[in-house]
Design a protein around this nucleic acid. Structure first.
Length: 421
DNA sequence: TCTGGGGTCCTAGGACCC
DNA sequence: TCTGGGGTCCTAGGACCC
């Protein structure tokens, strides 16, 4: 039988801010999404004030001012680096680990037969805290879904205090009864709404529900989730990070754009970033999709359109992609609209060495490959936007640039922003 | 006034093949 | 009058995750 532990950082982005700013401990703190749009991380104190996940900033402004909530813009350089530190510590406790997201990892405890798992988890918890300053919770179960549920309870229950071992079958059903159906891993808003209609309200209801009904409505994954609640593991640990099957870059603009040239600059910079990501993982793209849209909250005037291009030979060369991207943009751009967001998706990715060449127009990419390599090197040594394409615009004050008005310093990744004590 | 970004997988249906 | 069966591949859309 498998045994998995899920280690999950508590209110991760907020905890990262607190490590370098201890005055924030015990106070309500939130971290906002791009353009300071929505609350994407909340301290427990902020949650207790009723600030919900992903709520727009402008809707809670009164609360923030009234209750003295500390507000931060997203600081991805800091969170990414802190995440690495946490993961590096976790690896020292078991080499069999799946880094599931920026703040979560599954650990394989399967062969820890002579270990008290709760004690072991507590020592992981305290070591991570000591090494990084980040508080984590750990849930243990015989399937990933049960480990997730154990983690959820570990976080909320005072008695569990951050660690819960749910491998003993005696307690599983008691735990499942406390879990609302929408909190089960794999069951989102849509399925939860349906399940409640047919009187499946908790994880326990789901476990003992008619499998045929689940299969019909939710397909094979619904059945898997049900099995996982029985403790039968259907999702194994993915220990080797898999290469991406698609790469996307998109941004919402701070202020709407009406002008084609500005839109084209924004899109060119997203394509440029996407091409960099492709080169980072040695992938080439066969298919590029460009899309744009107006404010999705103004339903009456909403406009969305997209167009794709298939490259004869898969590529990751920025200028070639920008050229095609602009052609696609021209096809979907409509005069007089107020655009709020644009993006690009690269799909049908091919690994280096597997790119199908064109028999009738064989091309030599040696020069462009050298150029891309040189540009990537400059940018990695001198900073991301050091060398860029003119198509992305030369002005620093483009209206489409994402704003971060409350961003903390990059304490751990920039010599000029070190914490001064 | 103001509302994020980046992914994965599954399924149904259409086109096509023999 | 009466029109089969089995299979693959691709795509769009819908669901989910963080």
């Amino acid at each position: 039988m498998t045994v998995f532990a899920l280690a999950d950082c508590n209110n991760f982005y907020v905890s990262c801010e607190r490590v370098f700013n201890p005055k924030l401990v015990g106070k309500p703190v939130i971290v906002l999404s791009n353009n300071d749009g929505c609350a994407v991380a909340r301290s427990n104190e902020a949650k207790n004030l009723g600030i919900k996940m992903a709520v727009p900033y402008f809707k809670i402004k009164h609360l923030i001012d009234g209750e003295n909530v500390h507000v931060f813009s997203s600081n991805y350089a800091l969170y990414g680096d802190m995440s690495n530190r946490v993961m590096q510590t976790l690896v020292t406790f078991t080499p069999v680990i799946e880094i599931y997201s920026i703040d979560e990892a599954f650990l394989d405890f399967t062969n820890f037969a002579f270990t008290n798992l709760t004690d072991y988890a507590r020592s992981i918890q305290s070591t991570v805290r000591k090494n990084t300053g980040i508080p984590i919770s750990i849930g243990i179960g015989t399937s990933k879904t049960l480990a997730k549920i154990a983690n959820r309870i570990a976080k909320k229950s005072l008695k569990a205090n951050g660690v819960l071992d749910l491998t003993s079958s005696t307690y599983i059903d008691i735990a499942l009864e406390q879990i609302p159906i929408e909190d089960v891993w794999g069951i989102g808003k849509r399925y939860a709404a349906y399940l409640k209609l047919i009187n499946i309200k908790t994880a326990l209801d789901f476990k003992y529900a008619d499998t045929q009904i689940i299969k019909k409505k939710m397909g094979i994954n619904g059945v898997r989730t049900q099995k996982e609640l029985y403790g039968e593991s259907c999702y194994s640990l993915e220990t080797t990070p898999s290469v991406r099957k698609s790469v996307a870059v998109s941004r919402t603009f701070k202020t709407p754009i009406t002008c084609f040239d500005e839109l084209s600059q924004a899109l060119s910079s997203y394509i440029s970033r996407g091409a960099e990501k492709l080169r980072e993982q040695d992938s080439f793209s066969e298919n590029m999709t460009v899309y744009l849209l107006t404010n999705r909250f103004k339903k009456e005037s909403f406009y969305y359109n997209s167009r794709s291009h298939v490259f004869t030979t898969a590529t990751n060369t920025t200028p070639e992609m920008i050229r095609q991207g602009k052609l696609l943009l021209k096809q979907i751009f409509k005069e007089g609209k107020e655009y709020k967001k644009a993006g690009v998706v690269f799909s049908n990715l091919v690994k280096k060495g597997c790119v199908q060449q064109d028999l009738f127009s064989p091309s030599d990419h040696t020069r462009s490959k050298k150029l891309m390599k040189a540009i990537d090197k400059v940018n990695s040594q001198m900073g991301r936007h050091c060398a860029q394409y003119a198509a992305t615009g030369l002005s620093k004050k483009q209206p489409w640039r994402t704003s971060f008005n409350y961003r903390s310093p990059a304490y751990t990744t920039d010599w000029n922003q070190l914490l001064i004590v």
